[in-house]
Design a protein around this nucleic acid. Structure first.
Length: 579
DNA sequence: GATTGGACTTAGAACAGATTGG
DNA sequence: CCAATCTGTTCTAAGTCCAATC
């Protein structure tokens, strides 16, 4: 264990209550104290090499032509670069959308010379196909490169990673998440984004704020350039920031999830959720009581909180109209987003939700609710238009202030974390049975995970080749099944050499079961994305404990990256961990 | 209280690399 | 061994929440 600690010193922070060895305790505790700042500092020492910039634009070879109104036209590099952004997206349906085209053309014209501007007045007359074909050919060529050439690129990437991909934070070499600056291109929002197609400009050293400690070796800007600023703010965790031009928001370079600073925060998040577990009954009793309040704002608050708790809705901050896609969360629900049915399919007091949430993912759900909730909703909707706020006396800041009073550190999103994690734990308990073999246990795990993903509405577009790949799988299944039947019959007939035959049959049977499980899992997972809940909502200690309890290698549940992110939990959780 | 800016987490899609089965 | 497919990784947009400012 000591060896492990020395090999992975940045894990020590989380060990403190677990081990009794006094030397370890000393090491761990002192390290813990050393790392835990009480003044809001995030680090004492921070050194890094700065960001890697996007490669400069390389003008197209002269044989790749752009045509306007059927006539060849040579563009200046500035305008040509923006044109290539569009050309690269030609196959995407984005480029057929009006808003996208309008925004693109407006921004493209800004990069044109006066002459180009007068000539190019209609996007419909622009022919980008040669450019598009050229890029397709390039990408084919890249795929067809020799092994040697591919290796060279890989080595160069590795060199860049070693040089720029790590930083030193408080005596630890930590992996940086995104050390490459986002290259210029066309903004692709999600859903109906009013800014889709706008030009995302190239980021240069003069846009960059570097954050590092005073006593570190400061990163050098590329020759002949200067940083916008070098600051030494140890109250934040980012290494580099810049302001993007689409929304005017700040972007950051931060550390990888495997880093101490992220792991510690993650652990803290789940500890807060476990705190909620202790007082959630009290809170539920209270909001049910508040449904009867004489104050409208309190009733609204209580109904909203009920939705957040029961349906794992997001908080729902206000958004600036026209700046982003029209999406909502709980507090920003509008009258048009719900329908009330006093009776529906034999159930009483049914609420139908239909709205676009984060990333414009549709939330559709029909849920029976308590009569009081139903009556309250009717009241909230009285004399309102469809586009009026459902909870007009409520916003996230009011709600979170209330929650803060109920429990230290409680905010709306803690309910999502809590309900996700408690659901996983409960589902695992319910679904796992001792008799099952390994693949079946994994299926049970995935089903528990799926229950959470459904709760949190984590959807994905069904994979393009889903139907086909499903058919293939079925086909293989049938083949193996037939083989299984014949070989079984065969084994029965020829009793003498039974051990050999029997084993073969067993192996086929095992393979068959594996395929069956795989088919079931895939079918059930068609439109569900498991990754997000696994990575962000499920206390990893629940999964680790489950693995230990059933002697399942943790690698079956978490891949390498996930194991790195959850290293703290893997080393901390025993088989009896209770969320 | 309302508004804004800032820092951080959460999100699905696109892409790249690894695996697999014919 | 090679193409098809699957899996893991990268990308960056889009949320949450808090604090500063008015």
């Amino acid at each position: 264990m000591l060896l492990l600690l020395f090999l992975r010193p940045n894990l020590m922070f989380c060990f403190y209550p677990v081990y009794s060895n006094s030397l370890l305790d000393y090491l761990v505790n002192s390290r813990w104290e050393e790392e835990r700042y009480t003044d809001g500092s995030k680090w004492k020492f921070l050194e890094h090499k700065g960001p890697v910039f996007a490669p400069p634009y390389e003008p197209l070879p002269s044989q790749v032509k752009f045509f306007y109104d059927g006539k060849h036209m040579k563009l200046r590099p500035e305008a040509e670069e923006v044109a290539t952004f569009f050309a690269k997206m030609l196959d995407h349906e984005y480029t057929s959308k009006d808003i996208f085209r309008k925004n693109f053309f407006k921004d493209w014209r800004k990069e044109m010379s006066a002459e180009e501007k007068t000539k190019l007045t209609d996007l419909k007359k622009c022919d980008f196909t040669e450019m598009s074909d050229y890029f397709k050919a390039q990408s084919e060529a890249r795929k067809a490169m020799s092994k040697d050439a591919k290796l060279k690129i890989k080595e160069e990437n590795e060199r860049l990673l070693q040089l720029y991909g790590f930083c030193i934070m408080d005596n630890h070499r930590e992996r940086i998440a995104n050390f490459r600056i986002e290259p210029p291109g066309l903004f692709r929002g999600r859903g109906d984004h009013p800014k889709m197609g706008m030009l995302k400009r190239r980021i240069r050293p003069k846009d960059i704020i570097v954050n590092c400690s005073k006593d570190s070796k400061h990163p050098e800007p590329p020759p002949g350039t200067k940083w916008k600023e070098v600051r030494h703010d140890n109250k934040v965790t980012w290494l580099v920031s810049w302001t993007e031009n689409i929304q005017g928001s700040i972007k950051y370079i931060m550390l990888n999830p495997s880093s101490r600073i992220k792991g510690e925060k993650d652990w803290q998040k789940y500890e807060t959720a476990r705190q909620l577990k202790k007082c959630v009954d009290r809170i539920r009793t209270q909001y049910r009581e508040d449904w009867k309040s004489k104050e409208m704002r309190i009733r609204q608050r209580a109904v909203a909180l009920y939705f957040i708790d029961k349906l794992a809705l997001r908080a729902g901050n206000e958004k600036e109209e026209g700046e982003t896609a029209d999406t909502v969360g709980c507090c920003s629900l509008r009258v048009e987003h719900i329908k009330l049915y006093p009776e529906n399919d034999g159930q009483e007091f049914v609420v139908e939700f239909d709205f676009l949430g984060k990333d414009s993912i549709r939330y559709y759900n029909k849920v029976p609710v308590e009569k009081r909730v139903f009556k309250n909703l009717q009241l909230f909707m009285e004399n309102k238009d469809t586009d009026d706020d459902l909870f007009d006396r409520l916003n996230t800041s009011v709600l979170n202030k209330h929650l803060q009073e109920l429990m230290d550190g409680l905010t709306a999103k803690v309910f999502r974390t809590y309900n996700a994690s408690i659901t996983l734990q409960q589902q695992l308990k319910q679904l796992t049975s001792a008799e099952e073999n390994l693949p079946a246990k994994i299926l049970s795990y995935n089903r528990a995970n799926r229950a959470v993903a459904i709760l949190c509405n984590h959807q994905r577009a069904p994979p393009k080749t889903f139907e086909k790949s499903m058919q293939n799988l079925q086909l293989r299944l049938t083949c193996v099944f037939e083989y299984f039947l014949t070989s079984k019959a065969d084994a029965k007939v020829r009793r003498d050499e039974k051990s050999k035959k029997k084993k073969a049959v067993e192996r086929t049977e095992e393979q068959l079961m594996k395929l069956e499980v795989q088919a079931t899992d895939r079918e059930e997972n068609k439109q569900i994305a498991l990754g997000t809940s696994k990575l962000n909502y499920l206390d990893p200690r629940i999964s680790v404990a489950w693995c230990k309890k059933w002697s399942i290698p943790v690698e079956k549940i978490y891949n390498k990256t996930q194991r790195e992110k959850f290293a703290w939990a893997i080393d901390m959780a025993e088989d009896d961990f209770e969320f």
